Computed example of a mutant assay.
Amino acid sequence: MTTKNSNGTLLTTIENQIATLEFGHPASNSFPRDLLARLTRELNDLSNNPAVSVIILKSSGSGAFCAGASFDELLAVSNQEEATQFFSGFANVLNAMRNCSKIIIGRIHGKAVGGGVGIAAACDYVFATNESSIKLSELAIGIGPFVIEPAVSRKIGKTATTEMTLDTEWKTATWAKEKGLYAKVLETATELDQEIMAFANKLSVYNPEALTEIKKVLWEGTENWGTLLYERAEISGKLVLSDFSKKALNQFKK
Rank of each mutant, 00 (worst) to 15 (best):
G8E: 00
L166E: 11
S53M: 03
A183R: 11
L192V: 09
M1N: 10
A96I: 08
I134C: 10
A96S: 13
M164E: 09
A233F: 08
F71N: 13
L43H: 03
F71P: 01
E234F: 13
T2Q: 12
K216Q: 13
I141L: 06
A91K: 08
F127S: 09
A198S: 14
K58S: 14
F31A: 00
V113M: 13
L46N: 04
Y182S: 06
G157R: 04
G116C: 06
Y182W: 07
I103D: 04
E223H: 01
E213W: 12
A122S: 12
S78D: 15
N95H: 04
E149G: 07
Q251T: 14
S101D: 10
S88N: 14
E169P: 00
L36D: 01
G180W: 02
G142T: 08
E82V: 03
A120N: 06
T20G: 00
A67Q: 10
I196L: 09
I14N: 00
M197C: 02
I134N: 01
C123A: 13
W219C: 10
S245Y: 07
K179L: 06
C100G: 11
L229W: 03
A189P: 12
I196W: 10
N207I: 05
S236K: 02
V185Y: 05
S28A: 13
T13S: 13
K135F: 03
D193I: 03
L203I: 13
A91N: 02
F65W: 13
V217Y: 11
N79L: 03
K247L: 09
E15P: 02
I196P: 08
K58I: 11
L166Y: 14
K102D: 10
T40P: 02
C123Y: 03
R33G: 06
S30Q: 08
E149Q: 12
G63K: 08
V185S: 05
T172G: 07
N224Y: 06
E42A: 04
I119S: 09
E22L: 03
T172E: 05
N16K: 12
G226P: 00
F252P: 00
R154P: 01
R232W: 02
N5T: 07
N49A: 02
K184D: 14
V205F: 03
A233C: 04
G118A: 06
A91R: 06
F127L: 10
F87M: 09
A83H: 09
Q17W: 10
V52Y: 01
C100L: 04
A200D: 06
S133H: 15
A76F: 05
S70V: 08
A200L: 02
I14Q: 06
P32G: 00
N5K: 06
